[in-house]
């Protein structure tokens, strides 16, 4: 299956609340084992299956923690 979307996570901004993991329709996000400088298990994209729908962006409480990309038509 072709990749339609991509997600860049700002590790410094993510607080590891997990709302995006819960909301992601294709379930391609998970929380890492590592901690960031604030002590949060931040979110990570598995690298496969993102549709670029942007739902993770809307449920995320941080202004700039996630950047969603879509494959140009």
């Amino acid at each position: 299956m072709a990749l339609h979307g991509n997600l860049i996570v700002s590790i410094e901004e993510c607080k590891g609340c997990g709302l995006c993991v819960e909301a992601c329709p294709p379930k391609v996000l998970h929380l890492t084992q590592q901690l960031n400088h604030c002590g949060y298990h931040t979110v990570e994209y598995t690298g496969q299956g993102c549709t670029g729908c942007g739902i993770c962006f809307y449920v995320c409480p941080e202004p700039g923690a996630l950047a969603v990309y879509r494959l140009a038509a």
């Binding site: 901004e13 607080k15 995320c60 409480p61 941080e62 700039g64």
Partner: peptide, 16 residues
């Protein structure tokens, strides 16, 4: 770059 809100807080979502 982070807000002062707790993880999972609704304020951040509404701010956006």
């Amino acid at each position: 770059h982070q807000t002062h809100y707790c993880p999972g807080c609704g304020h951040g979502i509404l701010h956006k």
